[in-house]
C-alpha cells in the first residue's frame, strides 16, 4: 500500500502545472550558467563552463531557490487533504498513519528529486550550444553531472523536503509553509554571511552548513583551475561529515513530524476543558435586537454611495488579508 500511495502522489504531482513550470525555470537556470559567458557561480575565468567543480557549485546554489518549489510538492502532499476537503474520506480508510505519512512524503520527495534533474540537464544543454566558445568547454562526462547531483543535490533536497513536510504537517497551511521558507532562507543568508566571512568559524560552517557550501569550499580550498576542470568532489573528510549530518538532520525532522501527526483530531485537553467551563460561567446577558423592521430607511445611489461602497470593500479586503493568514 505504501508503494501505491507514493505512486499516486507522484502521478498526481506530475499533472500539477507547478511541476512543469519549475522544470522549465530550473532548466533555464542551469542552461543560463553554461550557455552564457557572463553568468558563472564562483568559478575563476579559466575554469570550463562544464567543469565538475562549476557543476557542483551550481547544483548546490540552485538548491536554495528550489526550496520554494519543494514547498509546492511536499507541503501540498500533506496540506491538500485539509484544503480540498477530501481528507475525512482518506483518513477514515484503513490506510494507517505509516502509509499515509511516509507514502505522501516519498511521493513528494520523488517529484522534487525528479524536477531537480532539470538543473544538470540544463547545464549540459547550455554547454553544447553553438555560440559557446569551445575554448571554455571541457570534455563532456555524464559523471561530472551525476556526482554532484548525488552528493550535493539529493541530501539537500531530502533535508529541504523533510523540513517543509514537517512545517506543513504542523501548520496545516500552505501559506505558513511559504512564510516558514522565507524566514528560513533569510535567516540562513544572514547567518552564513556573518559567520562565513570569519575565519574562526570556517570549520564549523563546513561541518554544519546545511547546503554544503562551506564543506565544498573547505574541500576544494587549494584546488588549481586544472583540478576544478577535472576532479570530482571527494566524498571524505569534512564534506562527508557534512552530508551525513544533513541526512541525519532530515531523519530527525521526519521522525518528529511522524510523531506529531495524528490521523484523528484529538479532544481538547482536560486543562483546556476546565478553563472553558470557567469562562462560560462569566457569560453576561446578550443585547436583544430591534424586533420590528422599519421600512422607513431610504436607499440612495449617488457618489457618496460609491465612496461608501469602495471604503467598505477596501476595509473588508484589508481585514481579510491581515486577519486571516491562509
Amino acid at each position: 500500500m505504501l508503494f501505491n500511495v507514493a505512486r499516486f502522489e507522484l502521478r498526481y504531482q506530475l499533472r500539477n502545472p507547478v511541476f512543469w513550470v519549475s522544470l522549465f525555470l530550473f532548466f533555464l537556470l542551469g542552461f543560463g550558467v553554461t550557455a552564457s559567458e557572463n553568468v558563472s557561480i564562483g568559478t575563476p575565468g579559466t575554469v570550463h563552463e562544464n567543469a565538475p567543480f562549476a557543476i557542483a557549485a551550481m547544483t548546490g546554489a540552485a538548491s536554495i531557490f528550489y526550496l520554494f518549489v519543494i514547498t509546492s510538492f511536499v507541503a501540498n502532499a500533506i496540506v491538500r487533504d485539509d484544503t480540498t476537503g477530501f481528507g475525512p474520506i482518506v483518513k477514515a480508510t484503513a490506510i494507517g498513519k505509516r502509509n499515509y505519512v511516509s507514502g505522501r512524503f516519498l511521493g513528494g520527495l520523488a517529484v522534487a528529486l525528479l524536477g531537480y534533474l532539470a538543473v544538470p540537464f540544463g547545464m549540459l544543454c547550455g554547454s553544447m550550444m553553438p555560440w559557446v566558445d569551445p575554448e571554455t568547454v571541457g570534455p563532456q562526462n555524464p559523471v561530472y553531472y551525476l556526482w554532484p547531483y548525488l552528493v550535493i543535490a539529493i541530501p539537500n533536497i531530502l533535508l529541504s523536503s523533510s523540513l517543509l513536510f514537517g512545517l506543513a504537517t504542523i501548520t496545516r497551511s500552505m501559506l505558513w509553509s511559504y512564510i516558514g521558507v522565507v524566514i528560513l532562507v533569510m535567516g540562513y543568508l544572514i547567518v552564513s554571511t556573518i559567520f562565513g566571512s570569519q575565519i574562526e568559524y570556517r570549520q564549523l560552517m563546513a561541518q554544519y552548513e546545511p547546503f554544503g557550501f562551506g564543506a565544498i569550499s573547505e574541500a576544494t580550498r587549494y584546488w588549481t583551475a586544472a583540478d576544478m576542470n577535472s576532479t570530482l568532489l571527494p566524498l571524505e573528510g569534512v564534506l562527508l561529515f557534512n552530508r551525513i549530518f544533513v541526512i541525519a538532520l532530515a531523519a530527525i525532522l521526519l521522525a518528529l513530524t511522524y510523531w506529531r501527526f495524528s490521523m484523528a483530531e484529538r479532544a481538547p485537553s482536560k486543562r483546556r476543558l476546565k478553563k472553558l467551563a470557567l469562562m462560560q460561567n462569566g457569560d453576561a446577558s446578550e443585547p436583544t435586537p430591534q424586533a420590528v423592521v422599519s421600512s422607513a430607511f431610504s436607499q440612495r445611489f449617488d457618489s457618496s454611495t460609491t465612496r461608501a461602497q469602495f471604503m467598505i470593500r477596501l476595509k473588508t479586503e484589508i481585514m481579510q488579508v491581515c486577519a486571516v493568514p491562509g
Binding site: A92, A264, E265, R266, A267, L273
Partner: peptide
C-alpha cells in the same frame, strides 16, 4: 463514530 475525532 468514523474515528476522525476522539470524544471528550
Amino acid at each position: 463514530i468514523a474515528t476522525l475525532q476522539t470524544p471528550t
